[in-house]
Amino acid sequence: MPAPGSAPQVPERPGGAPYAIRPGRPGDRPPPSEFDGLFRDSGGADETQQLPQFGPDVPQPPSPPSGGHGGGGGGRRRMSRGMLIGVVVAGCALAGLAAGAVLSMGGDDDKKKNDTTLSDSSPSAEQSSEPADPAEPQAKALDALLADSNNSRASVIKAVDNIKSCKDLTTAASDLRTAAGQRNDLVTRLGKLSVDKLPDNARLTASLTKAWKSSARADNEYAAWADQTGGKRGCHKGKARRTPRVGAAERASGEATQAKKTASGLWNPIASRYGLTTHEATEL
């Protein structure tokens, strides 16, 4: 019998726990030592560790299995180092793919822009690369030479007329020799020009050369006639006597005229093509 005022004794159940204590179930058993270590490392059950937030594209770590003493809370409080490293690597990989996509899109835009620029500039490049007509500068150079070919014509005609009438014979002879020198100078200048791109350039240069040389020979023959006319018996009643010098001058002048006709026929089409000065035979 218990003493008055004392707590009643609970009889023990044979071979088991006392009647007031419910036998433990699997879920009520003490946690394994590993879980106990986790709680100790994390500072206790009251200290909750914050996990990083993940976007919708980053793989979520697997949820720890439910059940067990503190099973759900333990998984939220701590992740393994390997899992954290995997999450970081996955995030870096996704960031790298996104950056690569942006760069790729930018590269495509730059390529299209460059292609458009090249396409737009292609006609200009082709136009600038087209070579100019190589015959045009040669034609212009020859045109400048031909402009000087007729400078002495008036003085030659006047000198010959003076000889025929026995006037100013000394001046006439001087003017004729000066004209001959000018004709020979034209031949020298022509030989220094490049005319290989002009049509039928060989015949053109040969005709001009013959024309000017023949004219120079005719001028010198007329100048010699002026000398003869100024001598004894050179004039008769105000008129110069005809001598062999006159015949030689006339033959050379005829040769010059024929050559000038040929040269004029070859030059004028070239002059018309490039907008240059055309010349009649008598103007060369």
Rank of each mutant, 00 (worst) to 15 (best):
K192T: 12
Y222R: 09
R40H: 08
R183F: 06
A135K: 05
Y222Q: 05
G181W: 06
A139M: 07
K210I: 02
L198M: 06
D28N: 12
Q50P: 07
A20H: 15
K210Y: 01
A206W: 03
D219S: 10
G70K: 08
A206I: 01
A125C: 01
A17H: 11
A3S: 07
P199V: 05
A144V: 10
D120M: 12
P61Q: 04
A132L: 13
V87M: 13
L51K: 11
G67L: 11
R242D: 08
P131N: 03
A202I: 12
Q49F: 10
E130V: 09
A20N: 11
G37L: 13
F35W: 11
D109W: 09
E255N: 12
N151A: 15
A144G: 07
R153C: 02
Q49M: 11
A125H: 07
C92G: 09
R233N: 14
T278D: 06
P244C: 01
A202D: 13
A7H: 10
T171M: 03
A7P: 10
I163K: 07
D175L: 11
R153Y: 09
D161P: 00
T178L: 09
T178M: 05
L118K: 15
E130D: 02
L97G: 05
K140I: 05
A223V: 05
A202R: 13
P18T: 06
P32S: 13
E12R: 14
Y222D: 07
T48L: 15
V87A: 08
V187G: 02
R189T: 05
A173R: 08
A256D: 00
P31L: 14
Q182M: 11
A202E: 14
I21F: 07
M105R: 15
P31S: 14
A45S: 11
V246G: 00
R40F: 04
A240M: 06
A95E: 03
Q9D: 04
D219M: 03
C235Y: 04
L198E: 03
A99C: 03
L97Y: 08
S66K: 13
P56H: 08
D46W: 10
A240K: 05
A20W: 14
T116C: 01
L190W: 01
A224T: 14
Q49G: 13
G231C: 05
K192A: 15
L276S: 02
E34C: 01
L276Q: 03
D175W: 05
W212I: 01
A259R: 06
V156R: 13
K213R: 11
D28V: 00
A17M: 11
A95N: 03
S6L: 13
P61M: 05
A154N: 07
A144T: 10
S33K: 10
P123K: 14
L266T: 04
A159V: 06
W225K: 02
K113R: 15
G27D: 14
V102A: 14
V156N: 01
R22P: 00
G55I: 00
M1W: 05
Q53K: 13
N114H: 09
G73M: 10
V187C: 02
Y19S: 07
R217V: 06
G231M: 04
K113Y: 07
S119A: 15
